[in-house]
Simulated scan of single mutants.
Amino acid sequence: MAEGNVVAEKLNRRRAVPVIHLQGSHYDVGYDVGRVFASVIKNFLANYENLRDFEKEYKTDVGREVYDRTLANMKLRYPYYLKEIQGVADGAKVPFHQLFLLQMDDIIGTINDNHVPRNDTGGCSSIGVNNPESGILGHTEDAFSETLNHFYIMSAHIIPTPEDKENGAVEEQFMSLCYAGHMPGYTMGYNHNGLVFSINTLSPLVLKPGNTPRTFITRALLAAKSFSDAENILRDEGLGIGNGFSVNMLWTDAWGRQLYNVEVAPDLKGNKSLLNIHKYDEEPLVHCNIYQRLHVTEVIGPIIDSSESRLEAIHKYKPPQSRGEVVDILSDTAGKKFQVFQEKPDSIIQTIAAGIFDLDQRTWSIYIDKPNKSEPVAILPITFNI
């Protein structure tokens, strides 16, 4: 635990969406995030129970070897994102290794205990609509209850240093919701190249320790210039992802709008990620925290039970064709144990925010309470350089 951390009293759901606008190198942007949100980051690190488990594994021989191997691989693949993490650590005055453990997540958390059932939990639900009348991507951002009130939105213009450019960094402009202390990208947001996205955590049973953590791949997606560029980032040739997720992408380019879901999993036989790409031409996109097309052996437990329950609830509605219909579905709380909008105070998983991206209005609306019963706390502009 970082020096000076204190366990604060439990906060009720706050109707606040902190937004920070940043410009500079990867390190500078990270440093300013850490400096401005130091108290939020320290409080999250002090209270996030999963981090205690990660640190326990980190102190074992096997856990430390995997940590070191993952860090070495990321120094080769994404050294400039490591500088970002270091900047956050320096700005917030917290240990780098704690922030890197957050990025590794279940790769380190299960290193000495990879069995069935695994206590993975999750709850993000995404719904996309792309038709002549509407271009909508809606998402509930669900996370462990400690994450409630511990997030912020980064609006960043990354101007890489010459050294970072030599290592592959490019200029980036994006806006992303971030859990405290985490890199941007593994939630929802957009970039100025025409990409609007949301992420659903997926839980393959067998992971690949030492390979690219999903948070680095989704961080890199913020720099994607096209769908083919995003596909290359997701495939991660030469290494491949170490855990799993799916990404919902609504792309806008000179040819119009395209809606995709891509499921991503470790390739246990090769050095790349397994991908299943589905383009939605007519039907709406619906995705939760379960593989729907890619044949992967998954964990059993709450994350699967919750996903099946939420998918059942979502499909009780008629296929959505408009923003209002997406809003109503994402606000559903009919489930007794698992809800699309998880607001039960005793639930391990809470919906910390809901987002509605409206491509016709070019707005991103952020709700803290059920979106069909509340006004957005923030309405942010979507800016594309296309």
Rank of each mutant, 00 (worst) to 15 (best):
P204A: 15
L51M: 11
K344W: 01
S155D: 14
H115G: 12
S134V: 00
T212M: 09
L71E: 03
G301Y: 02
L275R: 10
D369A: 14
Y190V: 03
A254P: 00
T297Q: 13
F96H: 00
K316H: 15
Y80H: 13
R64H: 05
V196I: 15
F245Q: 07
N261K: 13
H278A: 10
V17W: 10
G194I: 10
D106K: 02
N261H: 12
Q173G: 03
D28R: 10
Y260I: 10
D105K: 01
P132W: 11
S155H: 12
G301D: 10
D106Q: 03
F174M: 12
L51Y: 04
R293C: 03
K42Y: 00
L239V: 14
A72E: 14
Y190R: 02
P266Q: 06
R235N: 11
K225Q: 13
I352M: 06
D32Y: 13
F44M: 13
Y179P: 00
H26F: 15
W251K: 12
E133G: 07
D236P: 08
R69K: 15
Q258G: 05
L11A: 15
E283W: 08
N248S: 15
H97T: 15
V7A: 15
V7F: 14
L137T: 04
Y81G: 03
S198H: 11
Y260D: 10
D358V: 10
G168P: 09
H192C: 13
T297S: 07
R15W: 14
Y190A: 03
S145A: 15
H115K: 15
D369T: 07
T140D: 14
K373D: 14
L202T: 05
D236T: 07
P184A: 13
V206T: 14
K56G: 09
D105G: 03
P320E: 04
Q98T: 06
G109L: 03
D369V: 01
L76C: 11
S155M: 05
V116F: 11
A46W: 04
G256W: 07
A8M: 12
A220E: 14
L380Q: 08
Y48I: 05
D369Q: 14
T147V: 08
N131Q: 09
P376F: 00
S347F: 06
I241Q: 02
Y152N: 06
V94E: 04
I158E: 06
S309F: 02
